[in-house]
Amino acid sequence: MDRRKLIADAAIDVIADEGLRSLTHRKLDESLALPPGSASYYFRTKSELIGAVTARITEDSQARFHEFVGEDPVERTSRYLESVLTDRSAQLRARHALLVDPSVDADARAGLAASLFSIEGAENLMGDRDLGYGYVALCEGLVVAGLTVGWTTASLRSAIVTYLSGAGKH
């Protein structure tokens, strides 16, 4: 893995575990056992680090979602959500911390808001823009609920089936 990705992943872990205020170039250098100044060589500012975090989460989300291509919408979505909640919980915690932090600029927050789910993909799946927005909202809500109160495979599937049934898609 290249050094930029390593630094972005370390930044995700710091934000997820300690919050944005704890994110410093020095902390990243130390956590990765890099020579001092390495993180700032690749990402000059904290804003650039946040951009790298956003790009990394988005890139990982797109790659993971495509792993489930060809499955029916309920199976595809529930398996994707399960993978997000289990394998990528640090990314989720970092994403949510950045989404609500007023010091993060609006463009970064917009990028983070679109990093897990694609409105266009949901519109394609649902065949309707409004239903696509609703589907993304459902998935976002399931992620928040999963992070805060927990989840089971059955609870994910039940919510997805209920939405798709109401939308006439299942």
Rank of each mutant, 00 (worst) to 15 (best):
T77N: 13
D13L: 09
P73F: 04
H96Q: 14
G127W: 02
L6T: 08
R4N: 11
S118A: 08
I7E: 07
V74W: 06
Y41N: 06
T54C: 14
L116P: 09
L131C: 03
D72V: 00
S40T: 14
R64N: 08
H96I: 02
Y133D: 05
Y163H: 02
G166Y: 08
L81R: 04
S22G: 14
L20T: 05
T54V: 15
R56A: 15
L85K: 04
A108T: 06
R56I: 00
P102G: 04
A94I: 07
G150M: 13
S47P: 00
G111R: 07
T86A: 10
A63N: 09
R64Q: 12
R64T: 06
T77R: 11
T24I: 09
R109G: 11
F65C: 02
S31Y: 11
A113D: 15
S47G: 12
S165F: 00
L34V: 01
P35D: 13
V53A: 14
L20K: 05
L147T: 02
A94K: 07
P102V: 03
N124V: 03
K46P: 08
L156W: 09
G168H: 07
T24V: 10
A10F: 08
A52N: 05
K46W: 08
A106C: 00
R109N: 12
G37I: 08
L28E: 13
V149Q: 15
M126E: 06
I119Y: 13
A145Q: 11
A154D: 15
L125C: 04
L116E: 08
D130K: 01
L131T: 01
G51I: 03
D9K: 06
L125M: 08
A10M: 14
R95H: 07
S118R: 03
S61M: 10
D9I: 01
A33R: 13
E75N: 05
E120S: 14
Q91L: 04
E140K: 10
G51H: 14
D9N: 14
G132I: 01
G37Y: 10
S78K: 02
E140S: 10
A39N: 03
A90I: 00
E120N: 12
E59M: 02
L142K: 03
M1I: 06
I57S: 10
L147V: 02
L164K: 04
S47E: 15
V84K: 11
D101P: 01
K46N: 10
A33Y: 14
